[in-house]
Amino acid sequence: MGLQVGKFMSPIGQFVQNQHPSWINKLPMTPLGFGHDGAAPTSNVGMALRGGLPKIAGLRSNYVLFVANAPVYGKNEDNSIEGSLDTNGKTTSNGAQPTIGARYALNPVGGMEIGISGAIGEIVDVNNTLSIRDYSVMDIDFMYDLGAVALKAEYVKQEVGTSTLNSIDPDGGVWEALYLQASYQFTNVALEPVVRYSDYHNPDTKRNQIALGLNYLFSNNLIGKFSYEFNENEDATVSSSDVTNNDILRAQLAFGF
């Protein structure tokens, strides 16, 4: 059993806590909704108890239980939603109930993990600390390493409740994101093609992305990455030349210590 006290990566799901380092992430960017201020919580300040469990019916599994300070919520001055749900670990709950959550993951066969996680608590409005709303997050994640082929998928949903004390955005909202990823490591050349679909919805926007990547493995921890992202804003009223509709070519050199 391991005990974490202080600030730690959010135990919700697997991308944020395990896949985000550049030498591990197969593409230069995070999936839509899994970066900062997205649908997946980023970090917590609190306490977590975690570890592996004894085999059950011959299957390995692991768990995390955590309690942490509440996140904060608040629209920007221009009433835009970007960054309004702040799930970076806070040193105070501002009078809100702390976030209590758990993750349980099962390893049905070698190389596979299926995880389910969630948390509940309250969230305080950054501009009105008397306005405290319900907050919840749930997540399902999947990883399967088949040797040359690696499959990864995750769905996360965060929900901010209603507020009768705040005239700004009294209805709260839902932030949800999904990604599906497949990669293949050739054995005779140090190349690894990757394809990933990601989808991100929040109260203001609906976007999706198909990313194609090609990695060159100088070594297992020194990786040159190239990707091309096809981005689409699903809101038909947004101009096709808007930044959220732009396709992007990226290159990155990643080194893992």
């Binding site: 391991g2 974490q4 395990n18 975690r50 570890g51 592996g52 692991n62 390493d145 493995l217 297992n220």
Partner: peptide, 28 residues
Amino acid sequence: RCHNLRAPEDLSQRAWVYSINHMRIRAG
């Protein structure tokens, strides 16, 4: 499941002790 394998010679004996204890938390 998460990352490319690291060869035993990549890290010193002492660094492996730290690394494996870190991975105990990350991998459950």
